[in-house]
């Protein structure tokens, strides 16, 4: 009997996998905090129909910081051309969390910064290692992601964002 149930269930999983619309995956619902201590539900992250760039980072991750610092230099241009909003999700835990706001200000980042100290948002987004970044289109659908960052990636991301802002497919 058990085996039959298991078989049926597995079948059900396969069917649902087949039907699942993984292409237009949206942000999951997870509670995080912003730097002012406000609770933010990640499913409410929005940008008025314009693209969103989400980057998971940490104060101890140098490639993460290099990428976000590179974007910070061109952020005004990015916003002007694509209307993008950058959301920087820090996965620093209570060891380093109080250093996040001073770093963000000290580096003049103009991003929306969220704190995910126990990795709940990271886990829900299936992030293995940082940096891991995502592009969301105007409908809030995840259309691109990348695990890692190298100098120059920011140019490619900007090109992708321009396409997404125009409503083009980037896959």
């Amino acid at each position: 009997m058990k085996k039959i149930i298991l078989l049926l269930s597995v079948l059900g999983v396969i069917i649902s996998t087949g039907n699942a619309q993984t292409n237009d995956r949206k942000l999951p619902s997870v509670e995080v905090k912003n730097l002012e201590g406000k609770n933010v539900n990640t499913s409410t992250i929005a940008n008025d129909g314009k693209p969103i760039f989400i980057s998971f980072w940490a104060t101890w991750c140098s490639p993460c910081k290099a990428e976000l610092n590179a974007i910070a230099e061109d952020y005004d241009e990015w916003k002007k051309e694509t209307g993008v909003k950058v959301v920087a999700v820090s996965i620093d835990d209570s060891r380093n969390m109080s250093k996040v706001a001073p770093y963000v200000s000290g580096k003049n980042w103009d991003y929306e910064v969220l704190l995910d100290p126990n990795g709940d948002f990271k886990r829900a987004m299936n992030v293995n290692n940082v940096p891991h970044s995502f592009i969301l289109n105007g409908k809030g659908e995840i259309v691109w992601q990348q695990n890692s960052s190298a100098p120059g990636d920011e140019d490619k991301i900007f090109e992708l964002l321009k396409k997404v802002a125009k409503g083009e497919e980037i896959k």
């Binding site: 730097l35 109080s98 001073p102 770093y103 963000v104 200000s105 000290g106 003049n108």
Partner: peptide, 12 residues
């Protein structure tokens, strides 16, 4: 923990 953050300067 105490921190202060303004444009260009952060202290914790």
């Amino acid at each position: 923990q105490v921190s202060y953050a303004q444009k260009g300067l952060g202290i914790s």
